[in-house]
């Protein structure tokens, strides 16, 4: 068989497999038929530690459309395509219910799923609208730091060459939350001007300043310097 024939045989095989896959997927239950409790497993959650045991939080009542969105979030995270446009198209102007469901997702993800957890923090901190949002974000700074990508409680690695990348990924959820808060304040200095929100934010930042990682502390300090005294 010449190269060209081989190529077409491979291509035909791939197309046939794709068609089978499509039929298999299209025969699955529709999102509205899937209960929220079936959607809570992170791609990597089965094999790793979960330092925050699932709280017996009551599953929020979500519309079928919101359940579908959560399923989409799982698909995006599993794909590892961080530039999936649906992150911006489907995950803005979030309801309290879907935020609570996403926070539950955060707890269910393995601690080592730094990108998964950080993505949840990103989506919630991008639009802080309530005291509950700030409360959730504060809890992120009350976690024990993750010390190794291979196991959050394992001894740290010590290769200086790419340790900057590793350090940022290890503290990704914490850094993302502060990044978005700083962005919000820089874009709108009047954000968090409500006294209750301001107090909650200062409480969050004081926790972030106590997080035992210098890069997180530095970001918290920068944000504190941006907040004027009342």
């Amino acid at each position: 068989m010449d190269k060209r024939s081989k190529f077409f045989v491979i291509l035909s095989g791939a197309a046939f497999t794709a068609a089978l896959l499509f039929f298999a997927l299209s025969s699955k239950k529709t999102p509205s038929e899937v209960g929220i409790e079936t959607l809570t497993v992170s791609p990597e959650a089965n094999t790793k530690t979960n330092a925050n045991p699932p709280t017996p939080a009551k599953a929020p009542l979500l519309s079928n459309e919101e359940q579908t969105r959560l399923q989409t979030l799982d698909e995006i995270l599993k794909s590892k395509n961080d530039n999936d446009p649906r992150l911006d198209q489907l995950f803005q102007h979030l309801s309290t219910g879907i935020k609570l469901a996403m926070e539950k997702r955060y707890q269910d993800f393995a601690r080592e799923d730094r990108n998964g957890r950080g993505t949840i923090v990103f989506l919630i901190s991008r639009e802080i609208t309530s005291a509950e949002d700030i409360q959730f974000l504060k809890s992120v700074y009350e976690e024990a730091p993750c010390t190794n990508m291979d196991g959050c409680s394992a001894a740290p690695s010590n290769d200086p060459h790419h340790s900057g990348v590793e350090n940022t990924s290890l503290n990704y959820p914490q850094l993302v939350g502060l990044y978005q808060i700083e962005k919000t304040i820089r874009n709108n200095p009047q954000a968090f001007s409500d006294s209750a929100q301001r107090a909650a934010l200062l409480d969050l930042l004081s926790k972030a300043k106590l997080f035992p990682v210098q890069s997180v502390q530095n970001r918290a300090s920068t944000i504190l310097s941006l907040i004027p005294n009342p």
């Binding site: 961080d82 530039n83 999936d84 446009p85 992150l87 911006d88 993505t119 990103f122 991008r126 900057g164 990348v165 350090n167 940022t168 990704y172 850094l175 993302v176 990044y179 978005q180 962005k183 890069s215």
Partner: peptide
């Protein structure tokens, strides 16, 4: 054509790497 997350990530990791 990068989403908000990608732009944030690019800024976060670049800022860290500038320290080298």
């Amino acid at each position: 054509n990068c989403g908000d997350k990608v732009k944030m990530d690019a800024d976060l990791y670049a800022t860290d790497q500038l320290g080298r």
